[in-house]
Design a protein around this nucleic acid. Structure first.
Lengths: 332, 332
DNA sequence: CCCAGGCGCTGAACCGTGTAAGTATGAGGA
DNA sequence: TCCTCATACTTACACGGTTCAGCGCCTGGG
């Protein structure tokens, strides 16, 4: 039981292979009547074009690529990726695109994959994650003229992201409304583009704020928390760049004899089941990560199909109020 | 700057394309001297064979496929997949294999992908996850004669898994050694093969034990916990099938006025950062999920290369002792 | 000396699709 | 009537590998 090819369809329809190709790809060159007949036959035979042959002939590979730079230390951001991939697939599968995934040790290798996959026509476009402030990958993609979309802050390439500055202001203003004036930000990896944006926004909304960099792990989150809690004018509220660190921070606060939210308020950026499960349940900045994926996929596919594709701004992360934030009880 | 093809190498070396193909693939048909010369030239030109052309000509596609059946409700098992994929890639990338990933709504669609990818030579083999007790995919894979490896309990296809029965016995015996006699198991999805195995082992080690089925979500875990804690002879220890449910269970226990571990001991199956971050830190059955991926990939690649490939037994999950388990204080 | 047979290589076909170039057909205008 | 021109196709080749049949050459045995 071999799969049908365009040759089979051509024989059945009494036309040439070329005509079949034109008909199935919506190209001019066949009459509407013939086209309909060919499409009907293709459908009846359950025809699916071979992507290998397609790619070889220089057409669409029907695959988009995603390379992830994942040092073992950033395990904490994992839920983000599964949600993202899930959202990506939701869009890709409707257009029968597949996702080619590759873990890479560094940016250098990542760019090598871009080049290899692209020259081999193995992918029609690339998605870029974990955008850095000065990201070598962007230049590589532009040089190679690979259709690409960024899942991250807007820049030279079309992107899908939300305005983190707005969310940061929301968080700071909320804390301010509770009477907090001494706020610290436990930030993520400092060379990630969105980390810089959040920090800038934080310092603008709260000029006297403290910022400590981490690598997203629970350990570094705990260490950063200890550091800021040991200062003279210890902050009364903390904003963490992920949920893992926020939970670790809660433990450190308890250890220091502080009660939450009475002595210390805590906000986590990115909500996850953990935030609502721990005690106290964490107030968090939540956002629809799946939507990032879906929209990034749509953006990239538009780009591949030659359509106009502009960066897209997602709904900013917004606060979900739980039990880890409360009125400031500390008098200055 | 086009990528080099075997034709370029052939011209450079003054031989035919066929000779180059033989030389690069380690096939007989060229002298050792010529082979070395050709390989040297290929290396100098930075030659990388086009997988599309390869696949079209009926050879290896250098891709293995993974389809994930992911109803939105089983979000809780996500960390498993990222670790697994990470482990897979570790092995695949050394052999320059890529991973083709597809989310599917159901088994029916999943099998359709098997058929499509295989007849199209888009993949050289498939990995199977989330094995069910009677899994239609296994038959489909055998019928299509697709090289495949299962990440799950051993069965008809070569598999990579650990003996969950052993781990379950370890957990039950540990609880028994602490004096617990009334133990409940908050199980995962009942039609998953490993769930059945764990339940069977649990009931064998603890015949008077209670088993409650869930769908892995925090909500169903909480509900199951409430149910077993409301029984007449309420259990003094609970074993959860994932970490999310265990954490949710802790909250339910607190809500019921129970203290952990004094009134109730809790064990989570599968360790994750959450387990060590919550209060009290959870005693957990930990295992190296990345190793599952690495070994499954190796198994599948062996299979694809025609080597003998037998199922592989991983190190069973073993207990990590934390603060959620303690001596039974309840007198019968 | 002759012939079998293995070695090392060439040439060509083939995989399934896309597409440029060429060809028949018919309509329409001068 | 003849020429143009668009339409609707066909033909042929390209894409980059794999593979099979075949061919010359060398070696060794009878």
């Amino acid at each position: 039981m071999k799969r049908p090819t365009i040759a089979d369809i051509a024989r059945e329809a009494g036309v040439s292979k070329g005509a079949v190709s034109y008909a199935l790809n919506g190209q001019p060159g066949v009459s509407d009547q013939t086209r309909r007949r060919i499409i009907a036959i293709a459908h009846r035979l359950g025809f699916q074009a071979s992507t290998a042959a397609r790619a070889l002939a220089g057409a669409r590979a029907k695959v988009i690529g995603l390379t992830l730079h994942r040092p073992p230390r950033t395990l904490g951001v994992e839920p983000f990726f599964m949600e993202l991939i899930s959202g990506l697939e939701a869009e890709l599968s409707t257009q029968s695109y597949a996702l080619l995934l590759q873990m890479v040790p560094d940016h250098h290798e990542e760019i090598a994959y871009y080049r290899r996959w692209w020259t081999e026509r193995r992918v029609d476009g690339m998605l870029v994650c974990d955008l850095r402030t000065h990201d070598a990958r962007i230049r590589a993609l532009k040089e190679l003229a690979i259709p690409a979309a960024v899942i991250g802050p807007p820049g030279e390439l079309p992107s899908v992201w939300s305005d983190d500055a707005v969310s940061m202001v929301e968080a700071v203003e909320y804390l301010a409304s509770l009477g907090h004036t001494r706020i610290a930000r436990i930030a993520g990896l400092p060379d990630l583009a969105h980390t810089a944006i959040r920090t800038e926004s934080f310092l603008k909304a709260c000029p006297q704020g403290i910022v400590v960099a981490t690598d997203y792990t629970a350990e570094s989150g705990a260490r950063a928390t200890r550091r800021v809690l040991n200062t003279h004018d210890r902050p009364t509220a903390l904003i963490y760049d992920n949920d893992i660190m926020a939970v670790a921070g809660v433990a450190v606060a308890y250890e220091a004899g502080l009660s939450i939210p009475d002595d210390l308020s805590i906000i986590a950026w990115d909500d996850s089941p953990i935030c609502s499960l721990v005690h106290p349940a964490l107030t968090a900045l939540t956002r629809d990560i799946g939507a990032y994926g879906t929209h990034a996929a749509r953006l990239l596919l538009d780009l591949i199909n030659g359509a106009e594709a502009r960066s897209r701004s997602e709904q900013p992360a917004h606060l979900v109020f739980r039990d880890s934030t409360g009125r400031c009880r500390v008098t200055p």
